[in-house]
Design a protein around this nucleic acid. Structure first.
Lengths: 258, 258
DNA sequence: ACAATAGTGTCTCTGAGACAATATAAT
DNA sequence: ATTATATTGTCTCAGAGACACTATTGT
């Protein structure tokens, strides 16, 4: 039996063929009362010209979390946003070039922080609103069945269906939206979309919830629920009244991260 | 601009260095009213002699789901059990040999189907009950903070603490148990542990819930909840009374998968 | 005064939880 | 009869949802 040192010296990591590992980032934002997702238009084969989720190869000196943070910095110019691992996609033929495993991440970004137009420049990027997603399966596992209708709308009113996207990206988007909807009401997910977490109204927060869920919520019930859930625990605190708005001024709140 | 065919021909997958990708399987079962996990004792460096979650390299011709199914067949001799992706662990230094990314899976196996003693033979395997897990964070993301007390008990009463396990496996186990507890009451997870899903009593099902949660449940309330949730939807159907038991015979049920 | 938005109150219904009571078998 | 287990019933309380009402600003 060899010692641990001998073992580590003799270990040859190239004795097996390894798949490529990429990190894909779903950069979500809420603007104009709609949930939107940042897509880029591919300027390479395969799927040349198709819209795709931004991503990149995992470097040997960074964890997947770090790679995701780096890519979102490169792609959207933002830092310190909420970022969580979504799922790892590993079907053998999901990329026609070679074996690629993709660790998908989900980011929630306030729209004011997004600077993708001033980004890499070479590649075209756009925010698509997610208009039609049907089906409501629970749980973390991605939909295994067929991709039903999913409709995305681009900035010029450009309509795209899920099957127009590159790779298996339609399924990944569906998984992400379901995940967000499922955990919206028992996590702090929605707060990640606030333009200023230190000064927001409950109406702003409700509009974010509505954008993610895809339907409207009762105003009174939403207030009651949120205030019971967060104010009693000291997680949101009043910051005085809004100034100069149309209608009755709203109370401003500040979010206290746990 | 080259054509797609030219592009695919010229593509060289070895232009980047790739990490190793493994699949780790958390094989859970319930026996003797306890939640138990299959661990193997490492017979190689690093962590020689330590207990670890079974796993293996992902082959180039199989998806992670397929690799997980293959490994559980090899390790525990079972097929067609519930298997779900848990999380992908990718810290740079989690394996001292080389860069290893691990896609962790969670399997729920009825204890009668487990045949790990007749398995590979060379390596020692054992079921450990999970006795002490503190902390109840919600959400799918693994605990980022410190690993608090986690106590495992082996078949001979052998006590192990989380820090005695190989690699970052203590954290992976904690993530898995939290995931199971979190989704227990809105998924069919518990049914995966039934010895015979076509003939079980509500008491058997309740004992599985209690083992996963780590505390007892009210008998009457459990019945009411389960029957409302499943019987009305036709997901469980009565199969006649149990025979030859002590006490009043229980109604047998059959689980109808969706 | 009126429009517009913020915020409160109320009613009903459902489900969770605690706990008591009843039913049916073996011994 | 007694023990052991299964099953049902009852009471209370908290939260979700529908909906009507009140409050405070600008114009």
């Amino acid at each position: 039996m060899q010692s641990e040192q001998q073992y580590l010296q003799n270990y040859d990591p190239s004795q097996f063929e390894h798949p490529s590992v990429t990190v894909d980032i779903l950069i979500f934002t809420v603007s104009d009362r709609k949930l939107r997702l940042l897509l880029i238009r591919r300027n390479e084969h395969p799927y040349l010209g198709k819209w795709a989720i931004p991503g990149g190869f995992l470097r040997m000196d960074e964890s997947a979390d770090e790679a995701a943070a780096r890519r979102i910095r490169e792609e959207a110019g933002v830092e310190n946003v909420h970022l969580e691992q979504l799922y790892t996609f590993s079907d053998v033929n999901r990329d026609p070039r070679t074996r690629v495993i993709s660790i998908a991440y989900l980011a929630t970004v306030p729209s004011g922080k997004l600077h993708f137009l001033a980004g890499t420049g070479a590649e075209e990027a756009a925010l698509f609103s997610i208009d039609g997603i049907t089906g409501e399966s629970v749980g973390e596992q991605p939909e295994t069945g067929t991709i039903e209708t999913m409709v995305l709308t681009g900035p010029d009113g450009e309509l795209i269906s899920g099957s127009d996207l590159a790779f298996d990206h339609a399924g990944i988007i569906r998984t992400a939206v379901q995940r967000m909807r499922g955990k919206l009401d028992y996590t702090d997910l929605a707060f990640g979309f606030l333009e200023d977490p230190n000064s927001f109204t409950l109406t702003e927060l409700r509009l974010i919830h509505e954008a993610i869920l895809g339907h409207s919520l009762d105003i009174g019930n939403f207030r009651r629920t949120i205030k019971r859930e967060y104010e009693a625990a000291g997680r949101i605190v009043e910051q005085g009244l809004e100034k100069g708005s149309v209608g009755r001024p709203a109370m401003l709140y500040s979010f206290v991260s746990p």
